[in-house]
């Protein structure tokens, strides 16, 4: 009986106090419960009143009669206030049943998620629209196989690779390093066996990723803005920017 919830204990206490008050007021519980305000109808109460011991049981097999009457109106075994049910015990969920579904705090997709998505999509469209209004996409001279522009640059996301080309053999810079990068990225979840996703538990992976991302970003920035004619190093504030998106 150790684990009775507090509100049930409180309710039982209140009922006991009420019964005591009624007993002090010299009102019989049966009379009180057969009031017009009672929730148990009068005929049911009548049936639950044992008329004559075993005869009552034989005559009305369906009626809830617990045993021999004590002094007339109150059924045997009734609690304070005349209730015929009692709280035997409270079994907490999880003590007998194995509860698998842990309740999760959830919200409706509409409007909580769809609203956010809609606003994000609108903002994105507005940004692209306004940007396109003011900045035109480049269109240079028609393609000419006989005239190589100086410098010739790859699209910006490949400029890190082009930058590596200045340092390594094309096979290393153009194939091995990006290939290894993609493969390492794909296998990251299988190589990283640390189960925690808390930042303080995965300082090594966070630093490793940051170092690589920064390394890549620096290469792209150098390739984009610090490389001029002949793919030689230039300062953009001195020689200008040799970069088209």
């Amino acid at each position: 009986m150790a684990g009775i919830p507090e509100h049930l204990l409180k309710r039982a206490q209140e009922a006991r106090e009420k019964a005591a008050a009624e007993a002090a007021g010299a009102t019989t519980p049966a009379a009180a419960s057969s009031d017009a305000g009672s929730r148990i109808s009068a005929d049911l109460l009548e049936r639950s009143k044992p008329a004559g011991g075993g005869v009552a049981l034989a005559e009305k097999p369906g009626a809830v009669v617990a045993g021999t009457p004590t002094n007339g109106s109150i059924p045997y075994g009734a609690g304070p206030g005349g209730h015929t049910q009692r709280l035997l015990t409270v079994v907490k969920s999880g003590s007998i049943q194995d509860v698998k579904a842990v309740p999760v705090d959830k919200v409706h997709t509409w409007p909580h998620l769809l609203g956010v998505e809609f606003v994000a999509a609108l903002a994105c469209t507005a940004f692209v629209f306004v940007f396109s209004w003011f900045v035109n996409a480049p269109l240079l001279q028609a393609a000419n196989f006989n005239q190589t522009p100086n410098p010739s640059k790859a699209p910006w996301y490949f400029l890190g690779l082009q930058e590596l080309l200045t340092m390594f053999h094309p096979m290393i810079a153009g194939v091995t390093i990006p290939g290894m990068g993609i493969i390492a990225l794909m296998f990251a979840p299988y190589l990283d066996r640390n189960e925690s996703n808390r930042p303080e538990d995965r300082k090594f992976m966070t630093s490793l990723m940051t170092v690589h991302l920064m390394f890549w970003a620096v290469l792209v920035i150098i390739g984009s803005f610090f490389r001029g004619p002949g793919f030689n190093f230039v300062f953009p504030w001195r020689e200008g920017i040799f970069f088209e998106l």
Binding site: A143, F158, V175
Partner: peptide
């Protein structure tokens, strides 16, 4: 998509990009 405008930027950017591809073993 970068190649499709068929201007100098497209042609030579893609030339640089595909030259690297040719070095795959």
């Amino acid at each position: 998509g970068y190649l499709l405008p068929w201007d100098q930027l497209a042609l030579w950017a893609v030339t640089v990009g595909t030259n690297m591809m040719g070095y795959s073993p």
